[in-house]
Design a protein around this nucleic acid. Structure first.
Length: 492
RNA sequence: GCCCCUAUCGUCUAGCGGCUAGGACAGGAGAUUCUCAUUCUUCAAACCGGGGUUCGAUUCCCCGUGGGGGCACCA
């Protein structure tokens, strides 16, 4: 019996954990199992989100399992807050995991747990033992090193400025599903347990992927150089390595500078989009297009379609630059198509989180009407407060520039006076009725609707941009319109 | 310094030996709607360089160059 088949079920491997979890059906060897393995040491990065997304898409495309593993071995930098953020961000994006910790903190889902590395110490000890017993690891300076096979020699390392022991070693061949055949020489023993007793990333990563039966490792290209170490570790354990797929990195946009996107870059954090009330489906759609395409010209696609079309060979090999404008455009197109109920709920949520005076306290029916007037006009939710301010207060600002421009043309004050006088006879029942009324008023003087439009809009909204004037008048209602016109005329 | 990956409009990309090199975002100019936004039309915009292979290279190979990543008792 090889090690590999021994690992066929996590239950066999780790019988003592069977006590705390419900045994699941045996894992079919043919089933795709992918994992996303973030460490809770910082905010949730857009690059991490895309790595999670590609893994999730592949799992959903193949009918496999998406595993969430928390790499929290760095006690110094871990925080429960960041862990929470991982759960919340994935959930917000709609990337549900089949196995992994329960966000509630009440145990795990899946039978290959625990899924937090901080709880897997016993497993790492067990695997360290295997290597030690097999002579593939040794102790030096209090740390445990993985032993490479081959002839040793001394060499000066120019980067580290010291002499190191090298090993003459065969090239490690990585058959990458995205990059093809990649060869790399690993020619130094490396630490797998630090002298403080803690295992290092390479070790826990491989042990976890073996014990969690991961079949495909989809991760950022920054890990490509690590992969030779990982392949060697797999061999050291007598395990067959999974398929690797290294996806391109997300780089800063040209305005942001050079290099890969870092957490300090504007727009790099998923949290930011959540706070700005971007639509998660828009962000997901945009992210999917960064490094992948469906093979034709389509860009806006429902998630089911992305799942259907997504596959590893379709992933690009070169890095992609982040484009905030394209994301914003994607978000707008999703916003325009959002069902009214969802838009109103989103608006409510946003205005509650971003105090906008009376808007949050408005009557639900009135609030809804105003928001639905704004929906087809705005490019992002954050425009909402300014765009709808005058609906919720009589103390709205008047744009001086717009005023200068509008008042300079024709006889705006006369038009306003005429409209004010006609107001009592104007039918506010519908947009069409209001339009008809103003047109009649205009026609009587040989004028058109346009002669009243700009100045009336200025008077009742203080600006020149907004929903159709007739809709504004109708929603505001005759009394408020009258008050605003009177006040404006008095001030002008 | 060494190792690995990579290279089509400003950006995301299509192209898988023969194309007027296509689409999208952003930008310019128009049109439409009562303003604005949307929408529509339209313009400008790219095969990094040099060698090969081939009847023919954006496409295949090599070398440069550019870009990116990695070289820890970080993950």
């Amino acid at each position: 019996m090889t090690e590999w088949t021994e690992f066929a079920r996590c239950q066999i491997l780790r019988p003592h954990h069977l006590l705390s979890v419900t045994p699941s059906a045996p894992i079919r060897m043919s089933q795709v199992r992918v994992r996303f393995a973030p460490s809770p040491t910082g905010f949730f990065h857009i690059g991490s989100a895309r790595t999670a997304l590609f893994n999730w898409l592949y799992a959903r495309h193949t009918g496999g399992k998406f595993i969430l593993r928390i790499e929290d071995t760095d006690q110094a930098r871990n925080s429960e807050e960041f862990l929470r953020l991982i759960y919340d961000s994935l959930t917000w994006l709609g990337l549900d995991w089949d196995e992994g910790p329960e966000p509630s903190g009440s145990g795990d889902r899946g039978s290959c747990g625990p899924y937090r590395q901080s709880q897997r110490g016993a497993i790492y000890e067990e695997y360290k033992r295997k290597l030690l017993d097999a002579g593939r690891a040794y102790e030096k300076d209090g740390a445990i090193w993985f032993r490479l096979l081959g002839e040793r020699y001394e060499a000066y390392d120019d980067h580290r400025k010291k002499t190191v022991t090298k090993v003459r070693n065969e090239k490690v061949v990585i058959d990458d599903r995205i990059r093809g055949r990649v060869e790399r020489v690993e020619d130094e023993d490396f630490v797998i347990f630090r002298s403080d007793g803690n295992p290092v990333f390479h070790f826990v990563n491989v042990v976890d992927d073996i014990t969690m039966q991961v079949t495909h490792i989809i991760r950022g290209e920054d890990h490509l150089s690590n992969t030779s170490k990982h392949v060697l570790l797999y061999a050291g354990f007598g395990a067959q390595p999974p398929a690797f797929a290294h996806i391109p990195l997300i780089l800063k946009s040209p305005e942001m500078g050079q290099g890969k996107m870092s957490k300090r870059d504007q727009g790099a954090l998923v949290e930011e989009y959540r706070q700005r009330h971007f639509l998660p489906e828009a962000l997901v759609n945009y992210l999917a297009l960064l490094g992948w395409n469906p093979g034709d010209d389509r860009e806006k696609m429902p998630i089911a379609e992305i799942i259907r079309l997504f596959d590893l060979p379709g992933v690009n090999q070169s890095n992609a630059r982040f484009d905030a404008k394209k994301l914003a455009n994607m978000n707008m197109t999703y916003l325009l198509e959002l069902p009214p109920d969802r838009f109103v709920a989103l608006a409510q949520d946003y205005l509650r989180a971003h105090p906008a005076g009376a808007a949050a306290r408005a009557q639900p029916g009135y609030f809804r009407e105003v928001m639905l007037l704004a929906q087809p006009k705005i490019k992002g939710i954050e425009e909402l407060p300014a765009y709808t301010a005058y609906f919720f207060t009589e103390d709205y600002a008047v744009d001086a520039k717009v005023k200068d421009k509008v008042m300079a043309k024709g006889e705006p004050k006369a038009r306003l006076g005429e409209l004010l006088a006609a107001l009592p006879t104007l039918d506010f029942a519908s947009d069409a009725a209001i339009e008809e009324g103003i047109k009649q008023l205009a026609a009587g003087r040989g004028l058109g609707f346009g002669d009243y439009q700009a100045v009336t809009r200025l008077a009742v909204t203080g600006t020149n941009a907004g929903p159709s004037l007739t809709a504004i008048l109708r929603v505001l209602g005759a009394p408020r319109v009258q008050a605003r016109l009177e006040r404006f005329l008095a001030g002008a």
